[in-house]
Simulated assay, not measured.
Amino acid sequence: MRLTVGMCPALTDEVLSKLKNAGIRNIMDFMLKDSEALAMETSVSYKDLQSIRRIIHAHYAAFAVPGDDLLGEAVRSAVVISTGNTNLDSLLGGGIMTGEMMEICGSWSAGKTSLCVNLAVHAALKLGLSTLYVDPLINISPLRLNHVVEALSEEEEVVEQALARIKVVTPSDVWGIFQALDLVRQPYFSVMGKNADSGAGGGANPMTGGGKIKLVIVDSLPSVLTPLLGRSQSQGRGIISHLATTLKSLASEQQLAVVVVNNVVQADFSSMKSHGDEPHSRWKPGLGRFWAHVPNTRLFIEREDNSSTLPDCQSNNPKPLNVNVTIWKSTRLKMANTKFSIFSS
């Protein structure tokens, strides 16, 4: 902002002209210049220069805020989203922390998607939170969600309200994920509700999904990111970095929790030791070192050998799925593990 006559009584036409001759064009130039040196250079009295400085401070300077106040505000604004499981909540220090990204790693059929479905259903049904479920592989269907919701509630109206809070999108590539994430910035999202008066042919009416999104789940992330890592994709890493930045920025700016799903591959112990890593498992995250630093917390999930992933066909209800979960990495949690049961979806 430029210095102008009238900003304060001491800033007259004569004073402004002398300041300009000394190369002082704007407020920043003036505030960075030592008042004593400027008084000698411009022949403007030191008293007038200090008066101008005080008025600029009063009008344009930000108020000083103690660090304790900033920390207190951060703690108050942070929300921990319960997972619905006591053991998992205890492992995570209370639940999933908003403002952070959590990654769930595991092999095929380990229960990654089932855990994500349970997280989404609990947030929608028990906590009343809106959830965006990004599903590139189209693993999630209304039937799979219904099984878990109905297992937790017997009231039809409650089930419908819970399902309305879960927005499932099925992007075919990484650009579809970016487009889906635009929903997070909206004050609410819309879902399609069945119109009971439209007859057997069905129909849909738009309805509000229950408020601002507080939980984002991106399932099967490698399915859209792995093709970008090929040698022919020179810009692939840049796109992946942009996605990582977008997810973490949304978590921080919108104060929501982000959960992503990653695969695992066989670990090369000799390579890990050469880089100074401690091999805590025969598996390692599938997206490699380029993605390794992105999540705030990384979990490894594996299914118990005697646990079934198939629903009960006779009762049409999901069977309990027994899993082990280990913290592989965290910026705030110690390395630990726990066992618990979830509904197999």
Rank of each mutant, 00 (worst) to 15 (best):
G99M: 05
S172Q: 13
H147Q: 12
V184R: 03
G106N: 10
D173M: 05
G176R: 12
S220G: 00
S198T: 09
V191H: 14
G128P: 04
S141L: 10
E150V: 09
K194N: 06
G202F: 07
K126Q: 15
G93P: 06
E103I: 08
L91K: 11
I104Q: 03
A200E: 12
W175C: 06
M97R: 12
G95V: 06
H122Q: 04
V148Y: 08
T131I: 13
G99Y: 08
D182C: 06
G111Y: 07
N146Q: 13
V149C: 11
P187R: 02
L221Q: 02
G193F: 01
S141N: 10
G95M: 04
R144E: 15
V169G: 08
G94D: 13
R144S: 14
I104R: 05
K214H: 02
M97L: 11
S198M: 11
S153N: 14
I104W: 04
G211R: 02
E103T: 10
I96M: 10
A123R: 01
I213L: 13
V134Y: 00
G93W: 05
G176L: 08
G202M: 04
T113D: 11
K194I: 15
L132R: 05
V174Y: 14
L92F: 07
Y133N: 14
L127G: 00
D135N: 00
P142W: 07
A200S: 09
K212M: 04
S141V: 14
W108R: 13
I96V: 15
A200V: 15
V149N: 11
A151D: 12
T208N: 13
Q179T: 13
V117A: 11
E103H: 09
L125T: 05
V216T: 02
K167T: 15
N195C: 07
N195H: 02
E150A: 13
Y133A: 08
L119V: 09
A110V: 08
S198N: 09
L152E: 14
D219N: 12
I177V: 15
D182L: 12
A120C: 10
D182N: 11
L152H: 14
P136C: 03
Q186E: 10
I140Y: 04
E150S: 14
I217M: 09
S109M: 12
L88H: 03
A162G: 13
Q186F: 01
L129P: 01
P142D: 04
K112E: 10
A204V: 13
G210I: 03
I213A: 02
P206I: 15
S223C: 00
I166N: 04
L221R: 00
V148L: 08
P187L: 00
G199W: 11
N118M: 05
I138Q: 12
V149D: 13
D182G: 01
G94Y: 07
L152A: 11
S172R: 10
L91N: 11
A151E: 13
W175L: 14
L127C: 01
V121P: 02
S153D: 15
T113L: 10
S223V: 00
I213C: 15
T131R: 03
S114W: 12
L91T: 02
P142G: 05
M102T: 15
G209H: 01
S130C: 06
E155L: 06
G93R: 03
V121H: 05
